[in-house]
Design a protein around this nucleic acid. Structure first.
Lengths: 221, 221
DNA sequence: TGTACATCAGTGAACGCGCGTTCACTGATGTAC
DNA sequence: TGTACATCAGTGAACGCGCGTTCACTGATGTAC
């Protein structure tokens, strides 16, 4: 009641702004860079007057940042949901891969854009994306720890491995989305690599800072 | 002498075409997608008449493909050169990382564009990039083999690990280029991850197709 | 409860500019005989 | 060796179109008193 500058009872983001953001994601998912979208093009896609854009943004980069923040918020929420159900019964490696993929499948559009903008976008866009990726990596790491995996290994090292797993999956996810027939093989490969990384870190944790070549440790060969 | 359609005694690529390609790389390295470059803009950057473009290309995508093929050819050549010198004396892991980085440092422009276009570009661009990356991975794999690393491990699995290493380095290379002060730390991280992958594959090669969780194998913990 | 005012999302017309593209041209190099 | 012709990279002027941006407007919602 005494809140100032907050109109329309709680609907924080105006409809037109939402539609422009969604239009941006839709267009960018077709293969275009977010920053290369025209603002008349956006207006058309959103079925809005071209200059409605200026009510909400100063330029397209600003819309890009807003769009990515939508995406990452969505991802973070989706992850929380899926995680509770999927992770209770399954081995950690395959479980991690699959909850990630469930999200990818459910948000192909957002994901194609995200995977693309991680290297292209403005600093703001990139840091928003890195933030979620690091968050997922941290979740994987904590999950492993909670399951008693490699208890003597340095947590920082485990986190690096988690980050590597996320990076590998993230960068290959467009391939996953674009070739449904190869999905099985791609997932198998992810699982294999994740397992190798985990075996590696469990066996190498205590020598990771030394300079001896890895072949010295092939005791099982 | 009897070659038809081959004029000007061997100078295959006309000067203007070269200048346009180089202008494209230069502009794209500043952060723009190759496909978003204007062709008048290219003409300006190349100090050429705008429509000289049409002498050599039908559209900007075609220039993009030509540019990427230049880059990858350069990379392939650079790799061969650097490799001979660098790989004869050094442990395989660090050596591999460093010859890669030497190339990155010497061709920052081409590399920033490459890392960006791997997810954005046209199918032709992407497959050209994947080709070099797979080639590098194969070189790493063969190198490991030649050094007698993990002789009983399936070559295909070793190749997957090599590919993962290349992917990780490739995707993080813009970060490497953009933050000179963090270079040491980034390289150290690459080396650590590569070593973990190699230890992992050496220890896990024979169980990679089974479903047992990795923690069962922590015999060294 | 009513009235007057403020705020703000969205509209429609209009601007000037740079863009992609086409055209007919020039001049240099290579080829035929 | 000379002459006539073909090829092709690069030029300069011109076109019409769509773009980003500005402006003054409308109409709905919220606020003051």
């Amino acid at each position: 009641m005494t809140v100032i500058g907050r109109k329309r009872g709680g609907a924080d983001v105006p409809q037109g702004k939402r539609r422009l953001i969604e239009a941006g994601l839709r267009l960018a998912a077709r293969g275009r860079a977010l920053s290369s979208l025209g603002l008349r093009e956006l207006g058309r896609e959103a079925a809005l007057n071209p200059n409605t854009f200026y009510r909400h943004f100063d330029d397209i980069d600003q819309l890009g940042v807003a769009a990515i923040e939508e995406v990452t918020a969505k991802l973070r929420m989706g992850l929380q949901q899926v995680r509770r159900g999927a992770l209770t019964h399954a081995d950690a490696t395959r479980g991690s891969a699959e909850y990630f993929l469930e999200f990818v499948r459910r948000n192909p559009e957002a994901f194609l854009v995200g995977a693309r903008e991680i290297h292209s976008g403005s600093p703001a866009i990139r840091s928003a994306l890195r933030r979620v990726m690091d968050e997922i990596a941290a979740e994987i790491t904590d999950d492993l720890r909670a399951r008693g995996f490699a208890p003597t290994t340095d947590r920082a090292l485990l986190l690096e491995v988690g980050t590597a797993i996320v990076d590998l999956m993230f960068h290959r996810s467009p391939e996953y989305l674009e070739h449904p027939s190869r999905r099985r093989a791609i997932v198998d490969r992810w699982v294999r690599l994740a397992r190798i990384l985990l075996i590696g870190v469990a066996n190498a944790g205590d020598t990771a800072d030394r300079d001896s070549p890895p072949k010295r440790r092939n005791s099982l060969e």
